[in-house]
C-alpha cells in the first residue's frame, strides 16, 4: 500500500476486524452490482469508497429526471446518460484505485452466467421479479453468494444467500408473481431514503463476506418499515422442496421467467 492508500483507508485499517490484511482482501475482492438505480447507487458509492478492487455494474437504462429523488449516484447533468457511465464517473471520482467494469445491458438468461462468473459476490439491486429470480437461480447454480434486496413504498427487505448452505430467494418465494400483480416503485412510489438504508446493508454484507468477518444475513429475512421505523428479522429455513436448491430441483439452469417480465423490462 502507498502512503496515500494507508491514509485513505486509515479508518478501516485501525479496525481490528479489517487491518492491513483485511484492506488487502477488499482490494482483491470482486463484487458485481446488478442495477445502477436506487439500491445500486449507495452500494456502488460505498463499495468504491471502501476500496473494493474490482466492481462490476450492470444496467441498460439511462438516467431519468425522476430517478434523482433517490438514486444519489446520478446528478442533474447526468440526465439522459447511461446509468452505468454516470455511476462509473462518480465511483472513480471517489476512489481512483477502483477498477469499474460496466455492462450496459439487461441481465437475462443469455448473459447472466458469463457476467457473474468473474465475481466473488453479487448484489441484486434490480427492480423486477424476472431479474430477481434469474439472479437467484444463476447464483445458486453457480455457487455464488449474493445479496437480495427489494423495496416498495416505505418497506424494504434483504437476505444474503450462500448457495446450498442457506435459504435462497425461492425458498421464500417459489415462483414469481404474475406480471403486474405487484406494483413497482414507479407505480406505487418509494420514499427516497429507503434504498439508502437497504442498499447500505447490502454493501455491508459484501464487505463482510470479503473480509470473512462477522455473521452474514443468511437464513433470516430482514424487513424494514420506514414509517414505523422498525426492523424485523424473520427466520427462514432452506426448503427441501425448493425448486432450485431443494432435494429434487426442477430448475437446473438459469432461464428467463417470461411471465414475470413486464413491457418495461423488455424495452431495452
Amino acid at each position: 500500500m502507498t502512503e496515500e492508500q494507508i491514509e485513505r483507508y486509515s479508518r478501516h485499517i485501525i479496525l481490528k476486524e479489517v487491518g492491513g490484511k483485511g484492506q488487502k482482501k477488499l482490494f482483491d475482492g470482486k463484487v458485481l452490482i446488478i442495477g445502477a438505480g436506487g439500491l445500486g447507487a449507495p452500494i456502488a458509492l460505498y463499495l468504491a469508497a471502501a476500496g473494493i478492487g474490482t466492481i462490476g455494474i450492470a444496467d441498460a437504462d439511462n438516467v431519468d429526471l425522476s430517478n434523482l429523488q433517490r438514486q444519489i449516484i446520478h446528478f442533474t447533468p447526468d440526465v439522459g446518460k447511461p446509468k452505468v457511465e454516470s455511476a462509473k464517473e462518480k465511483m472513480q471520482a471517489i476512489n481512483p484505485d477502483v477498477k469499474v467494469i460496466t455492462y450496459k445491458e439487461w441481465i437475462s438468461a443469455a448473459n447472466v452466467n458469463t457476467i457473474i462468473a468473474d465475481y466473488d459476490f453479487i448484489i441484486d439491486g434490480t427492480d423486477n421479479f424476472a431479474a430477481k429470480f434469474l439472479i437467484n437461480d444463476a447464483c445458486v447454480l453457480a455457487g455464488k453468494p449474493y445479496s437480495h434486496g427489494g423495496i416498495l413504498a416505505f418497506d424494504g427487505q434483504t437476505i444474503t444467500v450462500k448457495p446450498k448452505e442457506s435459504a435462497c430467494y425461492r425458498c421464500i418465494f417459489p415462483e414469481p408473481p404474475p406480471k403486474d400483480a405487484i406494483p413497482t416503485c414507479s407505480q406505487a412510489g418509494v420514499i427516497g431514503v429507503l434504498p439508502g438504508v437497504l442498499g447500505t446493508i447490502q454493501a455491508t454484507e459484501a464487505i463482510k463476506f470479503l473480509l470473512g468477518k462477522g455473521e452474514l444475513l443468511t437464513d433470516r429475512l430482514l424487513t424494514y418499515n420506514a414509517l414505523r421505523m422498525k426492523f424485523r428479522e424473520i427466520p427462514i429455513k432452506r426448503r427441501t422442496s425448493c425448486p432450485v436448491c431443494g432435494d429434487n430441483p426442477t430448475i437446473t439452469e438459469a432461464v428467463d421467467e417470461l411471465d414475470a417480465m413486464t413491457v418495461c423490462d423488455l424495452k431495452g
Binding site: G37, G40, C185
Partner: peptide, 12 residues
C-alpha cells in the same frame, strides 16, 4: 404466522 411480501423495487 409471518406474511412475507414480494418487494420488487430497486433500480427503476
Amino acid at each position: 404466522i409471518e406474511f412475507l411480501y414480494f418487494m420488487g423495487g430497486g433500480a427503476q
